[in-house]
Design a protein around this nucleic acid. Structure first.
Length: 222
DNA sequence: TGCCAGGCCGGGT
DNA sequence: ACCCGGCATGGC
């Protein structure tokens, strides 16, 4: 097996060549990324876009406006994203935390050390590791690699991890073997999602056109 | 028509 | 420490 650093570099090159720049996270502001990170939990992004459009149309894509909404009203606006009662509550939990701990100042929040802020975010009910890391990386520019279901499937399919490897194990695998570059982290995560959509969905057959085929020299996988 | 999408929580073993 | 059901909409 090749050196992991080489392997990740090669994976990145192949995906970049196959899919091109992904330009993540699509949003007009850091706040919109924070909101989108909650709304996209186990949801199709096309549905999240509808919810975001509703929020903008209602003029509440702004912290102080949104945090003043009741859960019912917010729920109706984010309804297309699915689990709308749950997500309205989770959003309010997060926004209330930002109001109380950082006086509603996102920039101040992101000046915290990465591990400190990450811990604080994880204490908010409804914010798990992927949501916290998405906020840290894409909204705050912190150096954390985002792991999602696609990431696990891609690595498992290529024999690099067990399918039941836990979040932090997978995250460490990337962070121990990639140069410390937030733009690289952002782009590689986005590219892995692009790969997953075409080739690594749960029931997708193994496929010879997979751009990651042969990655690590494990010819024949994926 | 059923399966799936850029998770997370809470309760039961 | 795991395992599982619940949460919900829209697109193919």
């Amino acid at each position: 097996m090749k050196d992991l650093r080489q392997a990740f570099t090669e994976l990145f090159r192949r995906l970049e060549a196959a899919y091109g720049p992904q330009n993540w996270w699509p949003a007009d502001s850091a706040f919109e990324i924070v909101v989108g990170a909650v709304l996209t939990q186990n949801a199709a992004w096309s549905n999240v876009e509808k919810a975001i459009a509703n929020l903008k149309a209602a003029g509440v894509m702004e912290l102080k406006a949104m945090v003043g909404l009741g859960p019912e009203r917010l729920g109706q606006l984010v309804r297309p994203a699915g689990y709308y009662n749950l997500k309205a509550r989770r959003l309010l939990n997060l926004l209330e935390f930002i109001m109380e701990r950082y006086s509603g100042d996102l920039e101040k929040m992101f000046t915290q050390p990465t591990d400190v802020l990450r811990q604080q975010l994880l204490e908010v009910k409804g914010i798990g590791p992927e949501t916290a890391d998405s906020i840290l990386l894409y909204a705050g520019g912190h150096l954390v690699f985002v792991v999602d279901a696609y990431t696990r499937r891609v690595l498992a399919r290529h024999g690099l991890i067990s399918p039941k490897a836990d979040y932090h194990e997978i995250q460490r695998l990337f962070m121990d073997n990639l140069p410390p570059d937030t733009d690289l982290y952002a782009e590689l995560h986005a590219l892995i999602v692009a790969l997953g959509k075409h080739h690594c969905r749960p029931r997708a057959p193994r496929c010879r056109q997979c751009p990651a085929r042969g990655w690590l020299g494990t010819e024949g996988i994926s």
